[in-house]
Design a protein around this nucleic acid. Structure first.
Length: 194
DNA sequence: AACAACCTCAACCGCATCAGA
DNA sequence: GTCTGATGCGGTTGAGGTTGT
């Protein structure tokens, strides 16, 4: 355990005297150039070869969440939100899996969106339904909902399939949705299957 | 205008897992 | 089979912007 801890710590800049904090335009440019040359793999060598005084993890994160092409920014549409809710119900807090089903969205973005927007929405709904105050609920509803659908703890990453207490076919049945949603879902499924 | 509360976003942290030596 | 470095992921934090009072 102590080993693992140490190993984790060694990977981050604070412990190596490397740069941290916000990226500059110049750093972005260098990183993008390095990724163009070497491909989005082998982050350790990318970080070194780009002459960035950044650790591999920082470089990867920056690329994945910001520099990667085809990234959509801001304004999660209603359809996307709906899909996020459905996928979260099915997959739990597996943001990377959810993101993989939302073209152009990053796991970080979805995670951020969920953590603020949707968890708040659900909380509000529960408060409305139960007719109780947030205080009385102890702000517990988020974890509960997520954990209801994901075995183990919220942070566990077991490879087991989630214990699906819901019918997946039914879950992804959009036949009751309005035509524009259906069209969007069809496009989305087409995209993600290819 | 000033302040507080709310919201968004980017980045860091810690851990698990993978892959190569 | 074991060790070690690299990678991927989810959780968390905090800075900065926006909105409301």
């Amino acid at each position: 355990m102590a080993d693992t801890l140490l190993k984790g710590k060694q990977q981050w800049p604070a412990k190596k005297g490397l740069n941290r904090g916000a990226w500059t335009a110049e750093e972005d440019r260098r990183l993008a150039e390095a990724v163009r040359i070497y491909g989005p793999k082998h982050w350790t060598s990318i970080a070194a070869k780009a002459g960035l005084n950044r650790c591999a993890k920082s470089c990867r994160l920056r690329w994945m969440n910001y520099l990667r092409p085809n990234i959509k920014r801001g304004n999660i549409s209603d359809q996307e939100e709906d899909l996020i809710i459905r996928l979260h119900k099915l997959l739990g807090n597996r943001w990377s899996l959810i993101a993989a089903r939302l073209p152009g969205r990053t796991d970080n973005e979805i995670k951020n969106y969920w953590n603020y927007h949707l968890s708040k929405k659900k909380l509000d709904q529960r408060v409305l339904v139960a007719g109780i105050s947030t205080k009385e609920m102890g702000c517990k509803s988020d974890e509960q909902t997520a954990e209801e659908n994901v075995p183990g703890t919220g942070s566990s990453r077991s490879e087991e399939e989630p214990e699906t207490r819901l019918d997946v076919d039914d879950f992804f049945d959009f036949s009751n949705e309005n035509p524009s949603t259906q069209e969007w879902v069809a496009k989305f499924l087409e995209f993600s299957d290819s």
